[in-house]
Nucleic acid binder design. Structure first.
Lengths: 335, 335
DNA sequence: TTAGCGTGTTGAAACGCTTCGACAAACGAT
DNA sequence: ATCGTTTGTCGAAGCGTTTCAACACGCTAA
C-alpha cells in the first residue's frame, strides 16, 4: 500500500504538504495541489485509518447500538439502521453495529477509541445503560426518551403527543368507545420508551375527555391478536375505534375484527402509529401517525456530529406528530 | 485516557511487557503478570484501537455489506446481520455495516485499512462487485454463489439442491400438478443468486420428472399474491401443490388459495423455503426447507477468520438442504 | 532601504501500540 | 566449573498520520 511518503516523493513535496492538501487546513498553491492530487490518483493512495485516528484522535466512525430484543419490529429497526448509515456517510462517517443489549459493546468501542460518537436505539424509561454511556468520552445520542436523560442528547417522535393526538382525532370524530392495541407484553415490561409514552398520552387524553378507553398488550401473532380483539369486544361490544401501535399484530387485528363482522372503516375506525410504508401497504390504507424514521435518524446523526466537533451541549428534540388521514377513520354513527 | 506507558509505570515494568501480557505472545512470570493486570484494572486501561491497528496491521473489524435493495426480505437480512455480528464477537471482532449497493464502501474501508475482512450479502449471479473485491488486500466471503467466484470464498444453503429437493418431495407424495411461487420480479431481474438457483433446481427436477411445473414471480403484497395465485389456477385448475420462496407473499398466497376454496393441506400442499421461524409462525405451520441463517453466518465468519490469519485458499461451501415436514404437505389424492 | 507581513512549504515531534533483537539470570547437563 | 538453553524482561525501531513551530520568499508600506 502506498503511504503518504510515497505520494510526497512522487509529487516532489513533503508529507506534511500532502496532508494539508488532503485536509485543506492550510492554503496550498494551485500547482502544488495539482501535482499532489495527481500523485494520489496514480498511486491509488488512501490514508491509513488507524494512523489517522492515532494522530488526529478522530476515527470517522460512529457506533450504533441496535439491540434486537424480543418483540421489536425488525422493519422499523432496519429503517433506522439504514437511515443512520446513509446519513453518516454525508459526514464521511462509517457505522459500527452493536447488537448486544448491554453496554459492554459501547464501552469497548468507546474506551478503545474506535468511534467518535454513539447512537443508541430501543431506549427504556429507566435505561440501565445510561450511566455508563454518560461516562464515555464520546457523545451519545439516544433515539428515544428515558425518564432522566442527564447529559445525553435525545431525539424521537413525540410519542406521548402522538397517543394524545390519536385519541383526540378519534374523539373529534365522535367516537366514545375507543381502545388501544399496544406492543407485546415483553416490550411493555421493559418499559420501552416509546411504548410507555404512547400509552401515557393515549390514556391521559382519554381521561381528559372523560372516556373509558381500554388499552391492551398484544403479541404480534394471529392467535395473540385474536385474543386481544376478543377481549376488547367482550369488554365493550360498542367499540367503534381502535389505535394500533403494533405492526406485526396489525393485519391479524384487522382480520379478527373482520371475523367479528367489523369492517374497516364502516364498522370500525382504525388508526396506526407506524412508518408510512406500513400504513400504506395494508389491504386498506390506514389513517396513521407516521413514525418519521428517516427524519429521526437524520437528526440523530446531525446531533451526534454537532457534539463531536462542536462541543454543543446536550439537547432533546421531540418531533411533532401529525395525523395522516387515509380514510380508515370515519365519523361515529350516532347510537 | 491511560496509555500502555501509564500501565507499565504503575506496574513497574516496561511497555513491551504490558503488551506481551495482553497478547500472550511471550511468556511472562506469574507475579509480573499479576502486577500488570492489577494496574490495567485500576487504570481502566483499554488499548487504543488505532494505535494497535497501525502497529499490528490488524483492526479486529469486519465489514458487512448488506445492501437493502427493493424486494429483499428484511427479516432474513436482519437475521444474517445479527448472527454475523454475534459470531464475529467470538473472535473479538466488531462489524462495520455497509449498506450501499455498489462496491465503493468496501473499497474505502478496505483500502483505508479499516477492516481485516469483508462479508458480502445479496450476491448476484454476475455480480459487478466481485472484480473490485478480488482486488482488495482483505479476504472476502460471499453469502451466495455467483457464476464465477474466482478467488473469493462462498457459503450458502445449496438453493439449487433445495429447489430440486422440494420438487422431489412433492412428486414423491404423488403430486403431478405443481407450481413455484418465487421472489418478486425485481429480485429475479437482478439475478439474485439464491433466486436463480432455486428456480433452476426446481425446474430442472420437474423436467427430469416429466412434469410441467409452472413458476411465477410474485410481489410481496396482497394484490401481487392474488394475481399470481389466480394465474396459476387459471393455467392449471388441477394444481395440488406449491413451493413458495417468498416470505412476504406467503400469507397472502395462502389466503388467496383459501378464497379459491383450496385449504392447506387438504386441498393444497404447501412448502416454503425460509428460516424456520417464518415457517412455524404461520397460522398453519408449514413444511419447509429451512434457511439456516445462523449457521450460514457462522460459517461465513469462520471462513473469513481462517483466511485472515490462515492464508487458507478460497473455498466454496454449500450447506445441504433438508425437508422439515410440518404437516402442510399431504399425499396427492388419486384423480 | 528596511521592517513587517502574508503565503506556501517543510522538518520534526508527537500519537500509542507491537515486535524484534538483545540480554541477564537461572537452570541443567557435562 | 563450564557451556548451552530456556525463561523473562527490556530498549528501540517502526507503523502512517497530523500538526506545530519555523522558515523562505516575495510583497507592501514606511
Amino acid at each position: 500500500m502506498a503511504t503518504i511518503e510515497d505520494v510526497a516523493r512522487a509529487a516532489g513535496v513533503s508529507a506534511s504538504t500532502v496532508s494539508y492538501v488532503l485536509s485543506g487546513k492550510r492554503s496550498i498553491s494551485a500547482p502544488t495541489r495539482q501535482r499532489v492530487e495527481k500523485a494520489i490518483q496514480q498511486l491509488g493512495y488512501r490514508p491509513h485509518a488507524g494512523a489517522r485516528a492515532l494522530a488526529s484522535s478522530r476515527t470517522n466512525v460512529l457506533a450504533l447500538m441496535a439491540p434486537l430484543r424480543a418483540g421489536v419490529e425488525v422493519n422499523v429497526i432496519m429503517q433506522f439502521v439504514s437511515s443512520v448509515v446513509l446519513r453518516a456517510r454525508d459526514y464521511s462517517y462509517d457505522v459500527l453495529l452493536l447488537t448486544q443489549d448491554d453496554v459492554s459493546g459501547a464501552e469497548r468501542v468507546g474506551a478503545g477509541s474506535m468511534v467518535d460518537g454513539i447512537i443508541v436505539m430501543d431506549v427504556e424509561a429507566q435505561d440501565a445503560r445510561l450511566p455508563s454511556l454518560a461516562r464515555l468520552r464520546q457523545p451519545t445520542v439516544l433515539i428515544g426518551l428515558p425518564r432522566s436523560p442527564g447529559t445525553l442528547s435525545c431525539v424521537d417522535l413525540d410519542f406521548e403527543a402522538a397517543g394524545r393526538l390519536a385519541l383526540d382525532h378519534l374523539v373529534g370524530l365522535g367516537h366514545r368507545h375507543v381502545a388501544f392495541v399496544g406492543p407485546p407484553p415483553e416490550v411493555m415490561a421493559r418499559h420501552t420508551s416509546y411504548a410507555d409514552r404512547v400509552l401515557r398520552g393515549f390514556s391521559g387524553a382519554a381521561r381528559d375527555a372523560g372516556i373509558d378507553a381500554r388499552t391492551i398488550e398484544c403479541e404480534g401473532t394471529a392467535p395473540g391478536a385474536a385474543a386481544a380483539v376478543d377481549e376488547l369486544l367482550a369488554h365493550d361490544p360498542a367499540l367503534s375505534a381502535v389505535l394500533v401501535h403494533n405492526e406485526s399484530a396489525l393485519p391479524h387485528v384487522v382480520a379478527r375484527f373482520a371475523e367479528h363482522g367489523r369492517r374497516v372503516p364502516d364498522d370500525l375506525s382504525v388508526m396506526i402509529i407506524s412508518p408510512p410504508e406500513v400504513a400504506t401497504a395494508q389491504p386498506v390504507p390506514l389513517t396513521s401517525i407516521d413514525i418519521p424514521t428517516e427524519r429521526v435518524a437524520r437528526v440523530a446523526v446531525e446531533m451526534t456530529m454537532a457534539r463531536i466537533d462542536g462541543d454543543e451541549p446536550a439537547e432533546t428534540r421531540l418531533l411533532t406528530p401529525v395525523v395522516t388521514d387515509r380514510g380508515s377513520t370515519l365519523p361515529a354513527v350516532s347510537p
